[in-house]
Design a binder for these strands. Structure first.
Lengths: 151, 151
DNA sequence: AATGAAAGGCTGGAACT
DNA sequence: AGTTCCAGCCTTTCATT
């Protein structure tokens, strides 16, 4: 299950985390092997599933999504989690959902255009899911850290 | 402040979100303009700051970081936030930190190898920050949704 | 796993519409 | 904003070590 990464793989990953569009030749010159070798290793790491996908970090505020919030969701005792997740997936403002220990059944992160839009999403979308009994909202005023794990 | 994205820009962004390493020529053939135009637009979007960086989504479990947790951090009234953030930045297990409304002063997301490691991070690192009075931890047992916002 | 070589393909700048 | 052009560079494959 735990794919083994050697120190070369780790160096490659660090360069890709910093800039997923970096050229293979540039990684090669940083790492000190040929680009053919880098190419093969990236394929192997990708196939191993350690890299789920190459993507981007967006500035949500600049896209007009100025409000970020975490919502603790309380659920009925005998809820069908899978079905609830399917309903949450249909809510486009939801970007993360976690099953958590502690008082909440689910913990959700979402982005909305503003506070009015947040109210609408809570009242018209999340609270409409029938197993949801109550929610608790924390608005993120600022996100001073957002990065990948180091390893 | 809010950079204007037209429908072509949005299509480009969607392709890059799905695969940040997609070739410019491939975006061009999906979108229906020349690759020179795509190239110019990507530069413009990047310069506009909407794309903060190209990066990757990792499978933290496969990297040996099996435990994901959210920590609500209670702080002294007169805390110097900036300094606390600097201390959190030095904790490599921390991947996100938010200033939030509600009962917590800060809300932190972190990855640890296992529950013992989580205990160590909480007791030996986070609770060692002098303004931290108390913490409340939610362990994420599973993360069934993790995606970018749609726009 | 890494290398070298080779072919084809892509990128990114320039000039122009 | 978009297009064409194109030289130079990069990617990717494969036989070999």
């Amino acid at each position: 299950m735990n794919f083994h990464l050697d120190s070369t793989d780790k160096k490659i990953l660090k360069h890709l985390i910093k800039d997923a569009r970096i050229k293979v030749v540039d990684i090669a010159s940083f790492v000190g092997v040929t680009s053919a070798a880098i190419h093969q290793r990236i394929g192997k790491i990708k196939r191993g599933g350690i890299i789920k996908e190459f993507t981007l970090r967006l500035d949500e505020k600049k896209l007009g999504y100025a409000t970020c919030a975490f919502v603790g969701v309380f659920l009925d005792k005998n809820s069908n989690y899978e079905q609830i997740i399917n309903q949450l997936k249909r809510i486009e403002e939801v970007v993360e959902a976690h099953y958590t220990t502690g008082e909440y059944g689910l913990f959700v992160k979402l982005y909305t255009k503003d506070n009015d839009h947040l109210m609408t999403v809570l009242n018209k979308k999340i609270k409409q899911i029938k197993e949801v009994t109550r929610t608790e909202t924390f608005i993120s005023l600022e996100e001073p850290i957002n990065r990948s794990i180091s390893f």
